[in-house]
Each structure stands twice: as C-alpha cells, then as structure tokens.
C-alpha cells in the first residue's frame, strides 16, 4: 500500500521534473549570460586573478565562500562535539 502510493507520487514528481528540464535552454547554449559575460571580461582587471573561477569564488561571491568555510567549520565543530569524550555516568536512552 505504502509502496504503491509512494511509487505513484514519485512518478508524478519525476514526470514534472523531467518535463521541466526539457524547457531549460538547450545544453551548451545558455541564453541570457549578462552576469557571466561581465565577470569573464572584467575579472582580470578587477581582481588581478587569471582564474575566473577563483575570482568568482573569492571576490565576486566572497561571502558565499565565507559561508562555505563557515559550514565546514560548523560541521567539524559539530563532529568533534558529538564525538567528545564524556562522562559515561548519565546513562543511556
């Protein structure tokens, strides 16, 4: 029962996603590209970096990278918090 309902809903969702994907611009020909053209043209002058990806990652979208580094920090802190040595007296469950 659960399996049948699940499969039907999943198929509906998959049909929507796949048919939606057919409406995206053809692969290999993205159409408006204003933002990226600006970055590719000006990255060398504005940031001095040859690698446009590096200039996007650290300069144009630097806050995202700070967030990303923060997420890594969060996850590491979380893992070390959960795997900490702790007193075993508080008991299970």
């Amino acid at each position: 029962m659960r399996r049948a309902i699940g499969l039907i809903l999943l198929l509906v969702l998959a049909a929507f996603l796949v048919s939606g994907m057919l409406l995206v611009h053809p692969f290999g020909a993205p159409y408006p590209t204003d933002m990226d053209d600006y970055i590719i043209e000006n990255a060398q002058n504005q940031t001095g970096s040859n690698s446009v990806v590096a200039s996007v990652v650290f300069d144009y979208r630097g806050l995202d990278t700070l967030g990303e580094a923060t997420i890594l920090f969060t996850a590491v802190t979380g893992v070390l918090l959960l795997l900490r040595a702790q007193k075993r007296k508080e008991g299970g469950s």
Partner: peptide, 16 residues
C-alpha cells in the same frame, strides 16, 4: 520524506 514527495508532487501540480 514520503510526505515531502507527496506534497511536492501535489503542490507542483496545483501551481502549474
């Protein structure tokens, strides 16, 4: 997650 998939399918159906 099954609820999520179900609601997602119905919501997209209604919205489209």
């Amino acid at each position: 997650l099954l609820w999520l998939v179900g609601v997602l399918a119905i919501a997209i159906l209604i919205l489209v």
